[in-house]
Design a protein around this nucleic acid. Structure first.
Lengths: 205, 205, 205, 205
DNA sequence: GATGAATGAGCATTCATTCAT
DNA sequence: TATGAATGAATGCTCATTCAT
């Protein structure tokens, strides 16, 4: 087995072990056992226990960055938004184990790692906010606190993906994408007054 | 100092230590140091390290359960929903440290604990779903997958509260409550077609 | 057993283990076994493996510093020199195991430790040199490179003590002191020419 | 590159690595890196890590043995002694790195190795003692404990060479040789009584 | 009750050595 | 011969938990 392949084997083994036991309960021995290598071998490929986790997470981040398209306001905006939602959903659900790691196990780690994840989310939030602000100028996003919109969007996506990656019988992706899109477009509460005040949504913070 | 008081001191010390270092990096020694008791004393009050965390989390759960009012469809529904949102927000933000523990550090723990938290969320989701289904019958909640609505609501609340509990200068609670309410009522995307299909939202799952 | 006593037990155990196996081959487990404590106990008293060694060596250094008297040129100089030689010999031979550690095992350790020992010897050499220079002014030390004299003195003492601490049947201390004193006073080579050039000993740089 | 040459490359690489980091901190990898060979290659030339060190030290011992001339009492004794001192100084200072290894890093190794070095020194001491005893019969060495004279000589040489091999700007060898010779001839203490008792030096041990 | 000294199982990491290619 | 990937025994250190005082 060549180095590239063995590295992959170790990465996948680590991903699966982390996904099932969480980072802290996962022992380097578990990873090695699953990868069928001796413990020393692990350290030929990764400098320490955290290194695999970082590589896994970095890979996911990179895939997301690649998948998202910058929205071109001159063209079909709704379609592009749906495309992006679909892309993000796809990246995560293509690797449910990794998703579970990122969304439920990555917290509670050493400050350095939490910071890394935190800055990833901060980046996403920033992207989202500026996209939303642009949308507001174009009139396709409601007036209101773009920061708040970014937060709720992030929360929604996290939760929905976490559930989808955890569930035994996941929903068809297209349904997930569609639901997200519709929900963002109109919420779910339907009580007379609300729509009327839609544009007086206060600017938070 | 009587038993009751000492127990409280330990609980608060644990909460603060967990909030600042996370569960794994928090040592029983740290808790004892902050509580000004000897290490042995800790074990007179809690059977092991996880016990304090469980008690803290259980307390939070109980407070939430107490705070939420069953919606009475015969009276002002919107007001009651706002009341519930406000109550949940209040419980969490009254104890930001504990909120941070639950929302960012509680993950990554042993399966047993993750399960406990998982079942809490499942309970919340069930409550939400039945409330939403009832709302649908009453016509105040859009047609569509109530389960999905429950998920997104949960995600939104988690994210917004996490942010509020982490932020240096938190927003006024009333603004948070208001924003959540309005968002649930109408989303933020505003593009012609969407509202029209509002009621044909597919039943997911 | 109180903390003070246990600390002593650990120190002596460490000293003996280091003396018999050398620092590297000595395992913390060996020390604990000899001291009859569990491994964790060791770390209650010393922060890591090197800490005991440092404490042992520091103790020896301190005892030497205490034992040496500053030579008062107005009084019996030869007597005072003999006293100092005797004191140094006594400190080392009172603890042969520690002597062996310092003289044969302390080398070859991490740079930090080697540096510590190096600076101790440098200090001794400096003391010796200034004492010798003073002696030269008083006419009781031969003309010549005081630095060189300091070096040879150090070398002599190290070797004689190493041997004395290693030997099965050590020589009476008073003999050692006496021999050192006499040797320093007249070397051992006896060939006509040498004494004549005694005072033209070149100044080594 | 033929076997002989590669062996030399490895020996020199090992010598340099040992000299700069000490035996324990030197990794076989370091040696291979410096020698530009793969790790497996090392083991084609040496059976284990200690083997190179032993070969290096054995080489040095052999060179010393070769360099020293048996003193012929019928001819210029002083000259022959100076010659021997000069030869020893030369062997060590021609390879300062190796000198440093032998004098400061070789200690602290496994008992087996310490024993090897110990027996080398014992051999030197024996040689020295018999030479000194012969010298005493000839009247060119002071009466007294020849064993003690051998020890101090050894200590002096070790220390002076260690310093010379460590120093940035080493002294001219001839000066070193000269100083040693003169010192052995007359020590450095000059206080009236000493010379008078020269011949009553007690027999130690 | 309260203390804090003692415990020891547990784990990440290192590195000399081997061996298939 | 040379390579360098793989090995796995070995060990320093941590920390939750216990228990004699």
């Amino acid at each position: 087995m060549d180095k590239k392949a063995r590295r992959q084997v170790l990465l996948q083994a680590a991903r699966d072990v982390f996904a099932s036991k969480g980072y802290h309960d996962a022992k380097v021995d578990d990873i090695c056992a699953l990868a069928n290598v001796a413990k020393g071998t692990y350290y030929l490929y990764f400098k320490d226990k955290r290194a695999v986790l970082e590589e896994l997470v970095d890979g996911l981040f990179a895939r997301i960055a690649t998948a998202i398209l910058r929205v071109d306001v001159a063209r079909d905006v709704a379609g592009q938004i749906q495309h992006n939602i679909r892309a993000i959903v796809a990246v995560f659900l293509d690797d449910p184990a990794l998703t579970r790691i990122l969304l439920s196990y990555a917290a509670g780690l050493d400050p350095a790692f939490v910071k890394k994840i935190g800055s990833f989310y901060a980046g996403v939030r920033t992207l989202l906010r500026s996209a939303l602000e642009e949308g507001q100028k174009m009139g396709i996003v409601a007036e209101g606190d773009a920061d708040f919109f970014a937060s709720v969007s992030l929360g929604i996506v996290k939760e929905v993906l976490l559930e989808a990656s955890t569930s035994e019988r996941p929903r068809p992706r297209e349904e997930i994408v569609d639901s997200l899109f519709r929900f963002l477009a109109s919420g779910y509460l339907r009580m007379g007054g609300a729509p009327a005040v839609r544009d007086r949504q206060p600017k938070l913070k």
